[in-house]
Design a protein around this nucleic acid. Sequence first.
DNA 1: CTGAAAGCGCTTACAG
DNA 2: CTGAAAGCGCTTACAG
Lengths: 343, 343
Amino acid sequence: MTNQTSGTPPRAATLTDVARLAGVSIATASKAINGRDQVKAETRLRVLEAAERLSFAPNALARGLLKGRTGTVGLLTSDLEGRFSIPVLMGAEDAFGAGRVSVFLCDARGDAIREQHHVRALLSRRVDGLIVVGSRTDPRPPLGAEVPVPVVYAYAPSEDPEDMSITADGVGAGRLAVEHLLSCGRRKIAHVSGDPAYKAAQDRATGAAAALEAAGLSLVGNQTYFGSWSEGWGRGAARMIVEQHPDVDGFFCGSDQIARGVLDALRELGRDVPGDASVIGFDNWEVLTTNARPQLTSVDMNLERVGRIAAQRLFAAIDGTRRPGIEELPCRVVTRESTAPIS
Amino acid sequence: MTNQTSGTPPRAATLTDVARLAGVSIATASKAINGRDQVKAETRLRVLEAAERLSFAPNALARGLLKGRTGTVGLLTSDLEGRFSIPVLMGAEDAFGAGRVSVFLCDARGDAIREQHHVRALLSRRVDGLIVVGSRTDPRPPLGAEVPVPVVYAYAPSEDPEDMSITADGVGAGRLAVEHLLSCGRRKIAHVSGDPAYKAAQDRATGAAAALEAAGLSLVGNQTYFGSWSEGWGRGAARMIVEQHPDVDGFFCGSDQIARGVLDALRELGRDVPGDASVIGFDNWEVLTTNARPQLTSVDMNLERVGRIAAQRLFAAIDGTRRPGIEELPCRVVTRESTAPIS
DNA sequence: CTGAAAGCGCTTACAG
DNA sequence: CTGAAAGCGCTTACAG
């Protein structure tokens, strides 16, 4: 018995070891282990016992070499730091993990060179497919045509409409948020958002405006207050809006950070939330929403679902069924204390 | 030329294809591509061109089968959700990525069964080693002795002292935080922390007490105010402490969330930070620290470094050099506006 | 300098 | 029901 802690670990057992211990050929051992039916029950038992005794784990490399499929997939993120990649990645990992597929994780850190490097490494390892996870909903350049395996783009869609992309429906989300405020009886709704260079910011504003228009209303100040994705901007914007439009009774915020700022400013201005005004955030980032005063209603982009669906689409594509185009998944409102009907 | 978008993607090129195109044997092609020196310069060139033309990527499975090393490593996390795993994971990914090692990511979601399942899958794929990333600094049960490859535990150390573990020095961190407040001239220091069931909470309290004792002082209220890792607890604790110990002039908070609560409560009580009291948080979680009013000084656990070192130790172990035991890496104070010398 | 051959660990027809 | 043999794509002695 080799001691694990004393230097060389024991070599992993091989089919040959199992076959020898069971007193059969490796062909028979293989069949027994893989549940083929041309094996006598008693023989199978002997093989299985031998495998157990040796903690035999079939070498997936050898299997992959033979089958042409490795049961592995590459997950290429552009920034692990970003809070949007993580849930997408979790969803994908979850969907794959359940189906015995292992996931290679690569972080390109927003660098195209690094990304190419990782793609090459992944192809060398013969992944069956690739998921490319972005950190914004702005379309990104495709990986390139020389990739011989299916690719699905998640969160950030590919610029090429022939590629498969799964993302969150930003316009729909803006609509949902405003409809929620409307359903609370709010009529003077302001939209405080982040950096206007983000497609997400534009999409949500578009959706918000559309929902208001459908109700015969328009945004307070007749504009979206774009700024940055920060609490500071939320505070400043809220102060300005309350001063210029004292009758404002609803805030749709482009992020939970902005919403936190808005909430703080309103409290300091003596405005009660949700009494005087309802506030809805975006992202449903728990650390921000549940610690807010009052707890923050927020739009959830269902990012884990984006990841799961991306994984499913990739599976299908690996099995030969491509479904090109951008698929925009709906978001949902998670109601907490910061929004309530006018009482 | 096969069209990528039209069904079957082109089969990846093989060494045989390259050799044929270059008009040499596969042995020679292999040597040329791998930079062996027993190849005529002109021949090498022909081979390289052929490889280029075919976008040849050597099959890492075949190579791994032959070499007994795959250049892959498993990263086993217990929860991707937790904000502590991510930086560790990033650090490890970074350290490996630089050295041409690919990383399998598995999330056990805190479930031991799922973890075993993942370990088996990883061993089947013949990873060269494993990093187990935990979400708390409390020691965890080891993976089990039947793992035939080196294992490094990161952030959460293994209960077995013979295993290799890399974690953050919680006691030292507590000391650092208090020493920072002392160096700001604070003498009435309160420690507001989270759930006392966390080893991290206990360690930091131990370090804090030690630093105060070394200065001939003790904690305000002669205790650590344990509670939960939330803003709400921070607010409540701060109010209570200010009421009972109005001369308090420093707060060492067990997390940035707690610190945010403390800051909010102090502002609402009319206490100026850092004028009347300095406040230091823990985790250096940017979304919380930089949006705070004033911006929050915080202890950074250098988690990326924990990940990187774990990767390095794993490398060394794969190469035969084990370094058993728990390695506690130092934390550091990141100074912002919430701490300043008494003026 | 070049190439035929063995072999990494497995699966799968194909005989027996 | 069982096993000998070929082969997945590559590397590495070993001859030539």
